[in-house]
Design a protein around this nucleic acid. Sequence first.
DNA 1: GCCAACGTTGGC
DNA 2: GCCAACGTTGGC
Length: 166
Amino acid sequence: MRTWLFKTEPNDFSIRDLRDAPDQMTGWDGVRNYQARNRLRDEIQDGDRVLIYHSRGRNPSIVGEAQVVSGPYPDPTQFKPDHPGFDARSSEDMPRWFQVDLRFVALYQTPLSLADIREVPEFADMELLVHPRLSIQHITDRQYQQIIARCEPELAARSPLIPAFT
DNA sequence: GCCAACGTTGGC
DNA sequence: GCCAACGTTGGC
């Protein structure tokens, strides 16, 4: 299982929206960037862990956790002419944009802000700092451990290797 | 394939 | 809301 970080603008869709959604699940639609698309389509697997990052807020932060609960499939909004995600170059047999389904796992006790991330030397090579525009980012196991140690200290103390919500 | 113009992102 | 950085488009 790998860990990813998905960015979202909380005004548009927040982790609380995911928590409150039917079955606490949502299709992660709207990704319109090729590098992010390739990861959704080719790398991300059912069961992978996803950290939710709120961008553009008062205090941009990693705020919680979700789980991938599907394989990749075509983003249906690309086919809807009235939808902002519509893409006339896509067709049902040649879809251009893909998504996965996420299920809510947890709101972190202590969100980890971008400002804090910048101050930790071990986070210097995080994609969030190196490629800040990429909306689907990979998180290494080591980075995850350090994130969870800050966001969920009790959980991390209980299971120091790869802490997991169960 | 270059690159200027344009659109979008996202921290501040 | 500003604006710098980045990604995409499309004429040539």
